[in-house]
Design a protein around this nucleic acid. Structure first.
Lengths: 198, 198
DNA sequence: GTCAATTGATGGATTGCGTCTAAGAATACT
DNA sequence: AGTATTCTTAGACGCAATCCATCAATTGAC
């Protein structure tokens, strides 16, 4: 493919430069009070350039997870059917394997200081929904009724996001996201609050 | 209480007038191509007035469900604990009881025509997350571990949204949302795709 | 070295959402 | 009449995100 850049002007700035500037400002002033112009000004680039690196302001925090979710969705649509859920477990385990999103973890642990509580809830919900949609499709393909497929898919997707959340809140130092996801999978097996309610 | 309006200028327009204008335009041009100014112009009111009735453009579609979710969240935070999940089932059943959201159903059934697929997914995810947050709090209060609480809460919340979705997609004529939710609760009891995967 | 092609950076304009404020209009109460 | 209350409205604002035309820097071919 491409070992070095083939042709054209080399990138003057990097994603990391922008992401660092953004996180600094989020911590100083809060998320809402930080505009894209503020971020680019601190990073020393023009406002236009920001959108060459990130598709939106919140993308600064979520691009790491978004990439992995996009890969997982690709993998999921490629699976013709998965009656016992083994493919799902494998793909989702790959998703969280060695996942260590610096900016996202920072945002989650400092969400109140950044004034991010609503924003994070909203953004997390979107990611969860994206993953759930792909999972629900696969479940239907595997013969699960539509209604059940939606619910089961939401459960799996929630397990992924809950694992990330639990990992971030536990200091992001002890244990990996993968470990937390393993916990989540175990919890799914016997959801006490759900099953006992039946 | 107030049987009639006590004092002050009476409302010149109504939510319904705006909602109808909005839905018409969504069907004609699509959601993204319809601006708030377009809606108010057709309804014959000023743009400013729109936000006296709805807090956002998407609120036109979701205010019905939002009201019910807000009530459910209030009820949920008022419950000290719910070890067997009976309170949860009751509150969520109340949520969907006799629910018949005209605009939302229209949007869901015509989502592709309205260019709403992404928008609806996003908005539905937000509502699901709001409900899930309150449910997760109650689950933790009831002694469920944090990770498990998040997952179980997501499952319940997904059941509500899936019921609404299934009801809208089945023509919104046959059966009620409550019936679909009953189906969903039954499905939760033995989630085949989840439990068999353990 | 010169030239074209490619890739990125940049400024500026544009659209639209959502917020806010000050002014005015319509009603009820006294 | 006058006053308080409730609603409407025009207008301006800040900001996110898109788009475009232009400029800058690099590679490779000749």
């Amino acid at each position: 493919m491409s070992s070095a850049s083939r042709a054209g002007r080399p990138k003057a700035s990097s994603r990391e430069t922008l992401a660092e500037a953004a996180c600094e400002l989020f911590l100083e002033r809060g998320y809402d009070a930080t505009s894209v112009a503020d971020i680019t000004q601190r990073a020393g680039v023009s406002r236009s350039s920001f959108f060459n690196y990130f598709s939106s302001k919140s993308d600064v925090l979520w691009s790491g997870l978004d990439d992995r979710i996009a890969r997982a969705v690709e993998d999921l649509v490629a699976v013709p059917e998965d009656r016992d859920g083994s493919q799902v477990r494998r793909i989702l385990s790959d998703l969280v394997e060695d996942f260590a999103p610096d900016s996202l973890a920072l945002a989650m642990t400092n969400s109140s200081a950044m004034g991010l509580d609503d924003e994070l809830e909203q953004d997390a919900a979107l990611r969860q929904a994206r993953l759930a949609a792909a999972l629900a499709d696969l479940a239907r393909r595997s013969g699960v009724a539509a209604l059940t497929a939606d619910i089961a898919a939401a459960t799996w997707a929630a397990a992924v996001l809950a694992a990330v959340r639990a990992w971030a809140e536990s200091g992001a130092g002890r244990g990996s996201v993968g470990d937390r996801f393993a916990d989540a999978v175990r919890a799914i097996g016997r959801l006490p609050w759900v099953v006992s309610a039946t």
